[in-house]
Write a protein that binds this DNA or RNA. Structure first.
Lengths: 234, 234
DNA sequence: TAGTGGTCTAGACCACCTC
DNA sequence: AGGTGGTCTAGACCACTAG
């Protein structure tokens, strides 16, 4: 663990333990540097971390201050997470039903987004994902055979696709570009999800690995009555 | 202008002028430091900037590489912008119609979100905002009288509210926390926006100034057939 | 093993806030 | 004017990648 990460955690912890009141001033960089026996730059890195987390803010020439109003920061869309993690964060248990896998040729949009060639085949993984038994999202993942190999359908396991890619292929999804859409008339949804006519949001994502390669596309029709979605804009 | 900002711009410019091919390796930090006659840390700050913009990525021990796939980066929701800017970014001309301003007492939710007290009054600014004459968003802004003063209704001008707060009160909105919702049955919308039954998204935002004070709340029902919304998740 | 980025330091000077 | 954060430096050592 790096020094600045350690220090960041210690201070975050002290904030969570209410050692400061909202709007309180934190010690100066110099003071903190002395306390932790590190250079000022290291302290600055640690504090920058906390600013990005929305825990503190600062004003040049004045100091660092506590911020308690950044309520729902933990579950913002800014941070990449799988649906599995999203559901687990909401303290629910995840499951998969109505799983379907099939194969077809890519369309032009997919060729463009995933940077593949026409000859490649695409696996389509469709499923309804549940939280505590309730259908919560209808999701469709589209990934090229050139990445997962011919026998993907046989070896696939329920749960997080990104976690599966990590374990089986050493592919680490670290980032995605997501489009958020209102659901339209023409969107075809499984009967099970239309049952109670819940409010739905449509997420379209391209997922990238740690080398900025586009790996797969996902379409997620998420129930918005059970999960809420936040974006921090800075 | 700081050195690292200058350097960041120069390199961004060279990228935009296609001096590198996609996936190309950029010069090493050391090389760049020599070229710009600055220290390595300064180069690192400049490069970090470009990583955040999605223009490059890097791999420890290997180097910095160009990334061209980050398509819609310019218009992501990650970056705070007013609706006026949103519309102008789409190369459209903004206008306001059906403007209504009234005053009422705050409800509990508003008291909590804006950190005000019960006695304060709230101004409600409702309007339909247009792009090239087309209704594009129904928006409702809620801001306390304690910030804008009693005579807000008289002095209000069409256009960006955040820009108005800047000019008239020196309040700089630099950040917001936004919730994205699917539009529900019970949402009341003006007839003009329901006309063609367009797909709509509902944005609920708390806007913060540069000292992390919550300033106002906005509800925006945005047409999703004319504007698209992206979030970068990292 | 050589080269690259990641962390860390100690000190300097500047820009801004506060009194 | 004194204190605080913002930028910048030159150099050190470490962690990782690649041939």
């Amino acid at each position: 663990m790096n020094k600045y990460e350690e220090i960041s955690k210690v201070i975050a912890d002290e904030i969570d333990r209410n050692l400061f009141a909202e709007g309180d001033k934190l010690p100066t960089e110099k003071t903190l540097a002395a306390r932790f026996q590190v250079s000022r730059e290291t302290i600055r890195k640690a504090l920058k971390n906390l600013i990005e987390l929305g825990k503190i803010y600062n004003i040049q020439g004045s100091g660092y201050y506590l911020r308690r109003n950044g309520l729902h920061m933990a579950s913002t869309l800014n941070k990449f997470s799988s649906i599995t993690e999203l559901i687990q964060n909401a303290n629910l248990t995840e499951g998969d039903i109505e799983v379907q896998i099939f194969k077809r040729k890519p369309n032009d949009e997919e060729i463009g987004m995933l940077n593949i060639n026409k000859q490649d085949s695409m696996f389509i993984l469709e499923r309804i994902r549940t939280a505590n038994g309730e259908s919560i999202v209808y999701s469709r993942n589209i990934l090229p055979q050139s990445i997962v190999g011919q026998d993907f359908a046989e070896y696939y396991e329920p749960g997080s696709l990104s976690k599966y890619l990590e374990l089986k292929y050493g592919i680490y999804i670290v980032e995605s570009l997501m489009e958020i859409q209102a659901v339209r008339e023409e969107d075809v949804l499984p009967y099970r999800l239309k049952l109670s006519d819940p409010p739905l949001l449509k997420f379209i994502q391209v997922h990238y690995d740690d080398k900025a390669n586009p790996i797969y596309i996902s379409y997620d029709y998420m129930r918005n009555d059970l999960i809420r979605f936040y974006v921090r804009r800075t």
